[in-house]
C-alpha cells in the first residue's frame, strides 16, 4: 500500500494543474477552518461606514452596503457552504457505495429496481429538485445538507455500481462465495476496497459541484439565510451596487470560482493518479 500511495502522491504533484488545484483547495480549507482566528472584526457586526473601497487603512477590503468588514465576511463566507456540500456529498457517496456495490453484486430484480429509481431521479433537473425541496421543507442548514445528499446519491450509485460491475465477475469474488461468505461480507470485505478509488474521486468531483449548487441556491434566496455570510448570498446582496462597488460582487465570485476550479483540478489529478494505479493492477495479464 505504501508503495502505491507514494506513487499516487508522485503523480499528484507531477502535473502543474494538479499542484495548483491541491494548493487552492488546501488554502480554502485552511481559511475556512481558521477563519474565526484570522478575522479582524465580527462578520455580522456593523463596524464602519458603508461601501468603503478596498485599501482602507482599517478595512483591508472595504465594507459592504451596511458597513460590515468585507474581509471578515469573505473569510467566513465559505464555511457554511463548504460544510453543507462536504457533509451532504459524503453521506451520499457512502450510502451510494453500499447500494451501488450491492446492486452490482446481487443483480437481478434488486439491481433493476435500484437502477430505475436512480434513472428517475437523474431525469429531473437538479436545481429544480433542490429548490422544490427547500421550498417544501424550509430553509435550514440541515434541510440543505439532506437535499444535497439526496441529489448526489443517484449519480454516485451509477458510477460506483459500474466500477463494482468490473470486479464482480473476477475470480476472487467467486472464491469468496465458494468459501460461503455472506453477501454482506463479500460486499464490504472483498468488493468495497476495490471500488474505494472511484468513491474518493466521486466525492471530490461531486463536492465541487455541490458547492456551486449551494451558492446558486443562496444567490436565489433559497440557501443560507442572512445575516450568516455566504459567498452566493453576498453576490446576490451586492448585485444592486455592481456599478458603484463592483468588488462586492467580484470578490465572493472569485472565492467561489477559485475553490471550484481548485477542486476540479485536484480531483482530475486524483483520478489520474488512482486510475493509473488501478489499471496497473488488473490490466497486466
Amino acid at each position: 500500500m505504501s508503495a502505491s500511495s507514494s506513487r499516487a502522491i508522485q503523480v499528484l504533484t507531477h502535473s502543474p494543474g494538479t499542484m495548483i488545484g491541491v494548493v487552492l483547495v488546501m488554502l480554502h480549507l485552511a481559511v475556512a477552518v481558521f477563519a474565526p482566528l484570522l478575522i479582524p472584526y465580527g462578520e455580522t457586526q456593523l463596524v464602519g461606514a458603508p461601501l468603503l473601497a478596498p485599501g482602507h487603512p482599517d478595512f483591508l477590503l472595504g465594507t459592504d452596503a451596511i458597513g460590515r468588514d468585507y474581509f471578515s465576511r469573505l473569510l467566513m463566507g465559505g464555511r457554511t457552504s463548504i460544510t453543507v456540500a462536504m457533509v451532504g456529498v459524503l453521506g451520499a457517496v457512502l450510502f451510494a457505495t453500499l447500494i451501488g456495490v450491492s446492486a452490482a453484486y446481487i443483480g437481478g430484480l434488486y439491481d433493476d429496481v435500484v437502477m430505475r429509481i436512480v434513472d428517475t431521479k437523474l431525469s429531473m433537473p437538479g436545481i429544480l429538485f433542490v429548490s422544490l425541496f427547500v421550498i417544501g421543507f424550509g430553509r435550514s442548514v440541515v434541510v440543505l445538507t439532506i437535499v444535497i445528499g439526496i441529489s448526489y446519491f443517484p449519480g454516485a450509485v451509477r458510477t460506483i455500481r459500474a466500477q463494482a460491475l468490473t470486479q464482480v465477475p473476477l475470480d476472487y469474488v467467486k472464491a469468496a462465495r465458494l468459501r460461503g461468505e455472506s453477501a454482506l461480507s463479500v460486499i464490504l470485505r472483498e468488493l468495497t476496497p476495490n471500488v474505494a478509488e472511484v468513491v474518493v474521486v466521486e466525492f471530490a468531483i461531486r463536492t465541487s459541484s455541490a458547492i456551486l449548487i449551494v451558492s446558486a441556491l443562496s444567490f436565489l434566496g433559497l440557501g443560507i439565510s442572512p445575516p450568516t455570510p455566504d459567498w452566493g448570498l453576498m453576490v446576490s446582496e451586492s448585485v444592486n451596487q455592481i456599478y458603484a462597488a463592483p468588488w462586492l460582487v467580484l470578490l465572493p465570485a472569485a472565492f467561489i470560482s477559485s475553490l471550484v476550479v481548485g477542486l476540479n483540478f485536484a480531483s482530475d489529478g486524483l483520478a489520474n493518479a488512482l486510475g493509473l494505479d488501478a489499471a496497473r493492477g488488473l490490466h497486466r495479464s
Binding site: 475470480d171 476472487y172 465458494l178 476496497p193 495479464s285
Partner: peptide, 20 residues
C-alpha cells in the same frame, strides 16, 4: 462440504483480491 472441495482458478491475478 465447501471446505472439502476447493478450487484454484485460471488467472491468479483475478482470483486474489488486489486489495488484500
Amino acid at each position: 462440504l465447501r471446505r472439502r472441495i476447493q478450487v484454484v482458478f485460471q488467472n491468479p491475478l483475478s482470483s486474489l483480491n488486489p486489495r488484500q
